[in-house]
Amino acid sequence: MIEPEPNPDAAKGDWQDYVAPLVALALALTFLALSYQLGETSRGMPLLFIYSNLAFVLLDILVRTDCVLGRVLKPLVSPGGKPMRIFGAGHKVGRECGAIAWILSFSAAILLLGMLIAIPMFASLYMLLWARFRPTKALLGAAAISAGIWLLFEGVLRVELYRGMLFP
């Protein structure tokens, strides 16, 4: 029997390569548990796809390893799948977390304060703190964006923008 060639992309025990499939595995198991709480007819289709998903997640984990089966399967099912890195390899994890935090904060601000407050607040703070614009440029930019949104949606389209949970 011919021994398959070593997988050059194999993570060789690097935990970073396994984070995403392990998170997917946890999610799939959660949905599996939830499916069994559904009625017998309702859970048929979801179970079919959850078990398929589990099989693919396990296969994804397998092809990342350097075991014989992983090396045989990788060129067949994931030839273009490169190992993943959370840190290093030119990734700015701090900036990525920061950018995601801005998005989530903006959404939370919309929900709580409404769009008429959240949009100018987010635009000005983003340009001041993240983009490091001069205060006049940031404030002018934020005012232009907010006025444009208000004019388009409330003025032209007659859609009342969300006023927020705190100001119903």
Partner: peptide, 30 residues
């Protein structure tokens, strides 16, 4: 892009909300 990012995010949020006037749609987008 630092001018484009708040502009597109604000338009996306307002556009998303305008479909069903449902604030939780903004959370789904995020």
């Amino acid at each position: 892009v630092h001018i484009l990012v708040p502009l597109i995010l604000a338009v996306s949020a307002a556009g998303t909300y305008s479909i069903h006037q449902q604030p939780y749609d903004v959370l789904v987008t995020a």
